[in-house]
Design a protein around this nucleic acid. Sequence first.
RNA 1: GGAGAGUUGCCGGAGUGGUUGAACGGGACGGUCUCGAAAACCGUUGUACCUAUUAAAGGUACCCAGGGUUCGAAUCCCUGACUCUCCGCCA
Length: 419
Amino acid sequence: MLDLKFIRNNVELVRQAIINKNEKADLDALLSIDDQRRKLQFEFDNLKAHQNSVSAIIAQRKKAGEKIDNELTEMSKVAEEIKGLANQLGATNAELEKLLLTIPNIPQADVPVGKDETANKVIKVWGEPKQFSFTPKDHLELAIQNNLLDLPRGAKISGSGFPVYTGEGARLERYLINFMLEYHCQKHNYTELMVPLAVNRKTMTGTGQLPKLEEDMYQIEKDDLFLIPTAEVPVTNIYTDEILIWKDLPKRYVAYTPCFRREAGSYGKETRGLQRLHQFNKVELVQFTEPEKSAEALEEILANAEAILQAFNLHYRVVTLCTGDLSFASQKTYDLEVWAPGTGKYLEVSSVSNFGEFQARRANIRFKDKTGKVRHLHTLNGSGVATPRLLIAILETYQQEDGTIKLPSVLDPFLRLTL
RNA sequence: GGAGAGUUGCCGGAGUGGUUGAACGGGACGGUCUCGAAAACCGUUGUACCUAUUAAAGGUACCCAGGGUUCGAAUCCCUGACUCUCCGCCA
């Protein structure tokens, strides 16, 4: 969330950000509640101060054996008043908090302004689309021919969008995950975490999924838990309500988790095969940085994610999301889109975002800087990368004319794994 | 799931319902001393919000969380979370 004082002092900037992000947030209501709250707070504080001072007098008199009846009757009235004010203040604060959580983060100045993905900007293209001497098949055909996937049975036991990987398909999926984890740990200096896949409401609110996206998540109602839509959620929140020290920053974490998304309202959109799933695997990179270093870290994470695609020698492009396509919590986001020659499309395999202090403020994650001052740090994350679309690109790119797959040699050490 | 114990500041650890933001110890930081360091001594050691913002200053809240009792709660009562021990169940 944004700093209330910042909002007060930059009303128009915030208003514009809401518009540019296509968000609906009632800024005026927020401001008027804030006003109301400050008035109540002032009244409350004054009355409390009065109560405190008289209470001290009562204590003295009582000790001295003097009469205190008058004070007591007056104070019981004051106590009533305070109770009333406290209730009002509590309700007002709750309302304020609720509104504040609906105000989106402000895009960085260098983010292109635009309504939807058509305004996104391609800033980099790596490699070239693979040329084939035959008509390339799409990944679903290839997967079926090679017995890598069993989608009907996945649908039978869970529903559509819950894939079953079979035999070599399951092994390949596992190797890909392992490859990426090892790559980021060994070459990019990340620390691996294994984290809970179900998290509580506070955690979901910390990274900004709640309250806006409740409809998009699988919920375990009995325990008020949610299945994570990305490892970003548990990993970023590990430091909730903590104060780190600048010497320990940046912190770099990598975590593999399955991700669960209801994808409500996106039926029929690019759903063939593994393109859009309710459960998929993803290796996620998360960094906690000093505010001055987050812009740099964003480029680093992008490069870390790109390194994976480059290792597989896959053609891809990097896109800067425009304001309208930016997520609620993000200040700036790069998408990595890998080329899938059989499907004939660029597929998003990674989203790399700088959240500034937005998440840190929600989750109350701070750090002590060089001067000893306690401030909110910056959080960032990026997929490094999501497997289903990576798998699509690999299958489609490395298919042979007979439909078999010749896997890229970087995977050899994993395929030969013997223990 | 059942029974018990606990949760206080950076850490350890006191705390009788009435100047307790919180004793005492440790750590950290600053200073004195020293060529330098150690030791010793002195001092400092919070966060959020509000009023005022030129500044200074003042006020309020916070002893796991939320309620309650009371003129007044770290202290009493209730509920919940978490940790530890024992029992049961279990991969």
